[in-house]
Design a protein around this nucleic acid. Sequence first.
DNA 1: TAGATTGTTAATCGATTAACAATC
DNA 2: TAGATTGTTAATCGATTAACAATC
Lengths: 209, 209
Amino acid sequence: MSERKISTAVIKRLPRYYRYLGDLLEKDVVRISSKELSERMGVTASQIRQDLNNFGGFGQQGYGYNVGYLYYEIGKILGLEEKHSLVIIGVGNLGQALANYTKFDKRGFDIEGLFDVNPRLVGMTVRGIEIRDIDEVYDFVRENNIHIAVLTLPRLKAPQIANELVESGIKGIWNFTPIDLKLDEEKVQVENVHLLDSLMTLSYKISNQ
Amino acid sequence: MSERKISTAVIKRLPRYYRYLGDLLEKDVVRISSKELSERMGVTASQIRQDLNNFGGFGQQGYGYNVGYLYYEIGKILGLEEKHSLVIIGVGNLGQALANYTKFDKRGFDIEGLFDVNPRLVGMTVRGIEIRDIDEVYDFVRENNIHIAVLTLPRLKAPQIANELVESGIKGIWNFTPIDLKLDEEKVQVENVHLLDSLMTLSYKISNQ
DNA sequence: TAGATTGTTAATCGATTAACAATC
DNA sequence: TAGATTGTTAATCGATTAACAATC
C-alpha cells in the first residue's frame, strides 16, 4: 500500500537498478555513489536519486549508497521478500520454456502447476510438474493460494479464462497473449509481454535508420 | 530515415494500433474515427491523432480513418513491408519456443538459422532448420544478409557474440539476455525483452496494492 | 449545405534534469 | 574540519490533452 502514487516509469526502472546492484554485489563492491551508478547505467545521477527517494532515503551524504543494503531494499520494494506461487496456463512451446526457466525460482517465483486443454498433454510432466486439465485450474488456484497466472495459451480462450481466474482470487496475470485483458484493476494486476509488438518495434528501428 | 525524431513512447504504441486495426479488419470494419478507436483502446482520441500525424495525415475530415488503409500504412511505418531474416543464437528452451512460433513468419520475420555452442544440439533440427555451431553464425549472417539476431543464450557469452555480430553486419538484436548490450547505435538497433524484469514489475504491482 | 471529424496549435500536465543546502 | 554526496526544491523539458479552425 503506497502513500503517493509512484509513476509507471519509475517502477519499470526498479528491476534494472536491482540487476546492476546485484552485479556490483557479485563483484564485492560495497558502496556506490549515484554518480558512478549513473555512468554505468547510462542515466542521470539525479534520476537515480529521485527514483529512490520515492521510497525512502537509502543513502548517506558524503558516502553514497551501501550496495548490499540498497539491493535488499529494492528487492523488498519489488515484493521479492515474499514467495510468489505461479501456475502456467498453456503448456505449448513458450509455456514449457518458461516452466524450465530456473531464474524465476531463484527470485522466489515458484511454479506450482501446469495446465492445458490438450488431453494429450494432460498427465505428462515438465520439470517434475504434472500437466493438469485446464478445468482444474480454478480450484487449484483457490486451494493453493496461487498469486500469479502465466497465460501462454491461444488468444481465443484467454479473456474468459482470465475472468474466471480473477473470480478464483488470482492476484496477478503475466499475459503473453496478444490481447489486452480488460479486468478489474482493483482485483488483479496485469503485466503484458507482447513479443510480436517487441519484434515490430525492432523492425521499426531497423527500417527507420 | 525519419525527418524529425519520433519519440520512443509513440513508436511503442504503433504495434498496439496495428493489432487493434488488424482485429477491426477481421471484423470487416471499414472506417473508424479516432474517438471510437480511443474508446476501444482506452486512450485519448487526441493522442491517436497526434501519434499518427507524426507520420502523415492518414484520415479524412468528417469521415475518420479507413481501417484497411491505416493498417497498411502503419505496417509500412513498422517496416513490415520488407522481409526480415532472423537467426536464433542459443537453442535452449526459449530459443526453441521462439523457433516454433508461427506468428513471426506471418509478419515477414523468417527464421533462417539456429546456432548453439552445445555440440549435442548441433546437427539436430527444429522445425526443419538445422542447428549449427555458433562459430558459423558470423559467416552465415554475412552470406545470407541476415537482419536480426535473436539472443537466447546465457548472459556470459552475450556481449562478445553481440560485438562480432555487429562486425558481421547485423542490423538488429532482439536481446533476451538480462544484460544491457553496449553497442554502436549507429550500426545496430537493440530491443530488449527482460522477462525477469517484467515478472518483478508484476510482483511490485501485486505487493503494492 | 450541415454535421462530423480530422490535423494542428495552444494549454496543461508530468517527468527529467539542474542546483544547492543539509549533513555525513 | 573539509570534501563528498545525498535528499529535495526549483527549473526545464517533453509528452499528453484540450480546443478549434479547416475541410471532407
